[in-house]
Amino acid sequence: MNVKESSNFILHAKSNEFYWEGNGQLSIKTFSNGRALYKTNRGFFAVEENRYLLLNEGPYTIGIEEKQDVESFCMFFGDGFAEDVYRTMDASTNELLTDPYKKASPLYFFERTYTTSPLLDGQINTLKRHHKQLDACWHEEQFHQIMQTLIVEQSTTLREIESLQALRKSTRDELFHRVTTAHEYIRAFFAEPLKLADIARIACLSPNHLLRSYAQVYGKTPHQHISELRIQKAKKLLANFELNMTDIAFEIGFSNPVSFSKMFKQHIGMSPLHYRKKVILDKKSD
C-alpha cells in the first residue's frame, strides 16, 4: 500500500498481531472478534465490532495485539471515486447530462469511528460474503452503493456540528474535530487512568472548554463516557467465569476491585458478583 493506488480494492484478513505504517487511500475499516488501534495526524482511533473507521487519504499506523485472531475487512476507494458519487447525488440531472465527466471538487469526510447502521452493516456483510466469487461489475456496484450510504450518513455528523455554539462554520468544524479527537482518545484508552486535563491536552482545548463542548455534542461528560465504556467491557468480562474481580478491575482501569465494585453498583444497581450470578442463572434457564 506504499505504492499509490488509483482503484477500489478490498483487504480481508485474519491475524492476532499486525502492524503497518504508511500512506493510505480514502478507506473504511471494519473489524470483528477484537479491535484495532489506528493513529493519524488527528489522533487515536480504536475500531471494534459494530463500528467502522472512516479515514481520508493520508498517513496512518495500525496495530493489532489480541489473544485471538481478529478479522479485518477494509475497503479502499480510488482517487476521485467519492467525488464522482457525490456529484451524481448533488448535481442536477441537466448538469450530469451536459457534462457527465466533469471533475468534481475534492470531498473530505470527518475522520472518526461511527456506529455501523443496519443499512451499511447489511451492505458490507453482503460484500464480505461474496467478494471472492462474483464478477468485477458486481463489485463496482457494491462500492457505489456503500459510498452513497457513507455520504448520506455524514448528515448525522453535520447535525452534531450544528449543536456547537460558534458563529462561524469554520470555527464549528474545527471545534468539532477537536472534541471528536477527545472522544476517540477516550474510546481507545478508557481502560487506562485518564484525567480531564490529559484528554483536553490531546484535543488542544482547555479542560472547561472541552467539558462544555463535549456535553453539547455527545450529551454526556468525558467521565460519564469513560464510565459507560468501562461498564460495557466489565459486563463482557464478568461473563468469563475464569476471571476474578481483581483481574477484571485491572482490565478496565481500576487499581483495586473495591473501586470497581463501587462504580459498577452505582451504575447497574447491583454488585459485580451479583451480576455474575445473574448471568449464570440466565444461562441455566436458556
Rank of each mutant, 00 (worst) to 15 (best):
E184Q: 15
L205K: 06
I199L: 03
K169H: 10
L196N: 07
T221F: 08
P207T: 07
L196M: 12
E242D: 13
Q216L: 15
L238R: 04
K195R: 09
K220C: 14
T221W: 09
H183Q: 15
F190T: 04
V217G: 06
N256I: 10
N256D: 12
L196W: 04
V258I: 05
N208V: 13
K220F: 02
I199G: 02
L167W: 04
V258E: 09
N256W: 11
K233L: 15
A249R: 02
P193V: 02
L238V: 04
N208M: 13
L211V: 01
P257L: 01
I202V: 14
K233H: 09
P193Q: 03
T171R: 11
A203I: 05
L237Q: 06
A215R: 12
E242Y: 09
L167Y: 07
E228Y: 09
Q232K: 12
R212W: 05
A249T: 08
H223Q: 14
E251F: 08
A200I: 03
S259F: 12
E251G: 11
F254C: 02
H177V: 07
D247S: 15
N256S: 14
H225T: 05
C204K: 14
A182M: 00
L205F: 10
A234G: 11
V217E: 00
R168Y: 13
G219C: 13
E242T: 12
I226G: 00
D198T: 09
I226Q: 03
Q216Y: 07
Q165F: 10
F190E: 00
D198S: 13
G219N: 11
E228L: 11
I248H: 04
E184G: 00
G253D: 01
K233V: 01
H209N: 13
K236T: 10
T246G: 01
Y218C: 08
I199A: 00
K235Y: 04
L210H: 01
Q232A: 13
R178M: 14
E228C: 04
